[in-house]
Structures are given as structure tokens and as C-alpha cells.
Amino acid sequence: MVEVSVIIPVYNASDYLEESLDCILNQTLDDLEVICVDDGSKDNSLEILNEIASRDSRVKVFHQENRGGGAARNVAIPHATGNYIYFMDADDKLKDYALEKCLDISKQKNLDFLLFKAINYAEDTGEYFETDDYSMNEIAEAVGDKVFSYDDLGDLVFKMSVTPWCKFYNRNFVVNSGAKFAEGLIFHDNIFFYDSLFYAERISFLDEVLYIRRRHSASSTAAGDRRYINYITISDMIWNIFFKHNVFDTYKAELATKKFGVINYWYKNIQEEHKQAYFDEMKGDFERIAEDKKFYEYITDSLVDWQRNILDSGLEADIPEEYDLMMENYDLEIENRHLRELLDEPIYKIAVSKIRK
């Protein structure tokens, strides 16, 4: 048995694969295995993997027909023999001491998983930049270097990055939790993360950037293509996980914000040619919520105005253009409301009265 199993799903990553694998194989921690699952790549990724495996026995290569990164990770987990599991993406990089440091902290604190920071690398410009999603500064400030669980965070659980590559997992914990990645869908990491989060009793945060996430046009969530429709299914799966762990009522308001806000966000950002298909899925999802009147009332009593407007507009509109008009009208109403409130302030009333004189 090795100390760490690194799991890497691979799909058409030939431009970056050798660099990413080098940063794992050249870690200061040598006692590791690298489990690569080629997810039906159409380039020469599989050939690159086999060539690297031929010269480094720590690399194990599996191949499957294209089923998505979630399925690839699920396939790899049973093959992992390490005491700990780390999930890596095939086009990103990890600092060379990262695994050793994560291992030391995880052993010392007897953790279910360790959370750490990541930074973005813009391939087009060569610039590095931080984002709140991966810096998680609010989490760092709240927990320090203490051991904690979700119960200690309140609504900060939604400030934790769902990505698997900024976490270092105890393998027995992963196996015993039974957490799985959603298959055939992008945003599949949401499901694994929330399920494992609610099982975890011992989590810690390392306030240090260890992971470099490459941002480029080929990224699975950068294209705005038909796969964005997946989020509607994922949002239902997230709700189901919160129900499963009996915490839905605790986080109902935040879950409503996450579901309706993000669904509307992806609607606005999907390519025009897929907008009708997205709208149809969105409307169908909202209609399923409305069909159960008791559940509909339970959900809507926690919605603020803009969330309720997204739900009501999705239910009432028959075509995307009608939904767009309803959303625009709502924005105008909010703007007018703010102007009326502004004009009601004493200083503006005095100014208006002077103008009229």
C-alpha cells in the first residue's frame, strides 16, 4: 500500500498532460501511485499515458468510452490503494511539495479531508489571479487551523469550493461515505463534495495556495455549450443530498439562492443556439416544483423577490423571449423603486421643491 493515490481523469489533454503528470511524479513525496483514466480521448492522450506508464511503474492507465470526468473518477476510486486520495485535473499543476505537506497535516490531525487554496492561471495572458471561489478567505478566517465539520460553518458551507482538486481525502473515509461523482454531467463535483461534506467529522483548512488551475477556452465549463443544461439536473441532485442528510430545512434559503440564481445565470450565459433547450428544461424543472403544492409553498416562503421572480417568470413564460421580457421588466421595476425611494429622501424633496418654485 502506498501513501497517496492521485486520480486523474483525462480527456483530450495532450497539450498539457506531460506537464501535469510531471508535477505529480516529481513531488517531494515519492510514495504514491497515479491512476489515470482516459475518458475516450480523441487525441493522443492515451498514447502519452501509456508511454509515461512504460517508464514509471507508479502510473496506472485505464481506458473507457467517453462518459465524463465524474464517471472516470468513480472508476478510479476502487483501484486506489493509497491511504489518501488526491484528485487532479489533467491540464493543471500542483506545487511540488503539496502532497507531502497535505499528508503530514492529515496524519497529524487525523482528518477526513484537508482543504487548501488554488489560484487561476490565464493561459492567454500568462497572468495569475485569485478568485473568491478558490481563495476561500472567509473559510480561512472562520476556522483558522482548527479541526471542524460542516456544523461549525453555518451558511459558510456555500463558500467552500466544490472542486475535488483543492481537497486531500482519507481513502477509508471516501470509501465508507459511499460518495460518488455524478456521471455524464458537468458540474459533477458538486454531488461528491456535498455528500462527503455531510459525512465528514474532521476537516481542516490549509491557508496556502497549492494548486494552479489553468483557464483556457477548452475548459469544460468555459464553452457555454449545451452541457450547461446539466446544471438543472445537478441542482435537483444537490437538493436531494441535503434532504438525504436531513439538513435541507437548515439551509433552505441558501439552497434557493443557489438553485434559482445559478440556473438563471447559466441561462443568460448559454450559447444562443441552446437557449430554447435550456429554457424548456428550466421550465420543466420549475413545473415539477409547482406540481407539489405543499412543497411549492415550503420552498417559496423562503424566497426573496428576485428568486421568486425567476421561478414565477419561468412558470409563466412559454418561450425564452417572453421569459427575457419578464426579467427585464422586473429589473426596470426594481430600478424605478430605487429612484422613488431616492426621491423620497428629505434632501431630494427640498431640491425638487426649489426647482418647482
Rank of each mutant, 00 (worst) to 15 (best):
F248Y: 13
I241H: 10
L197W: 10
F198V: 12
I203A: 01
I263N: 02
L185G: 01
F248N: 07
M237A: 13
V209S: 08
R227M: 08
M237S: 09
W239Q: 02
Y194R: 08
R214C: 11
D152M: 09
Y265A: 11
D189P: 01
A179E: 08
T250G: 02
N176V: 03
D195P: 00
F187C: 03
T233L: 11
R226K: 12
V147K: 04
V209K: 12
Y150R: 06
A222H: 10
D236A: 07
I203P: 00
I232F: 06
N246F: 08
L153C: 05
N190Q: 10
F168W: 02
E183Q: 12
W266H: 15
M237V: 06
R214Q: 11
A200V: 04
Y199R: 11
W239N: 01
R213L: 11
K159E: 08
S204Q: 04
A218K: 15
E254W: 01
T221R: 15
S161Y: 00
F173A: 08
D195W: 07
L210Y: 15
Y194D: 10
A218W: 15
L255E: 02
T250V: 11
K259L: 08
V262F: 14
P164D: 11
S196A: 14
F242R: 13
K259E: 13
E183S: 14
N190W: 07
S204E: 06
H216G: 09
V147D: 05
A256V: 14
T163G: 03
E183M: 11
F148C: 10
T257Q: 09
R213N: 11
F242G: 13
D189W: 03
A253K: 15
F205I: 07
P164C: 09
D189H: 03
N170R: 05
N170H: 03
Y211M: 12
V147S: 06
I263A: 02
S220K: 09
I232S: 03
H188D: 15
Y267K: 05
K159W: 04
M237F: 06
S217E: 13
D155V: 05
E254P: 07
L156S: 08
F181P: 10
F168S: 02
A222V: 03
A200I: 10
Y231E: 03
E183R: 14
S217T: 14
S177K: 08
I234A: 01
K244V: 05
I191K: 04
R215V: 09
A182W: 05
M237C: 01
W165C: 12
Y231F: 15
D195Y: 04
I238R: 00
F243Y: 14
F173W: 09
F158P: 09
G178E: 06
V209Y: 14
F148M: 07
N264P: 04
S235R: 00
T250N: 13
D152W: 00
K258V: 04
V209P: 01
S204N: 10
E208Q: 09
F148H: 01
K259P: 01
F243G: 03
D152I: 05
H216C: 07
G178A: 01
Y267W: 03
R213P: 02
I229F: 02
T250I: 15
V247A: 06
K259A: 00
T250W: 07
Y199S: 10
D249S: 10
E183N: 06
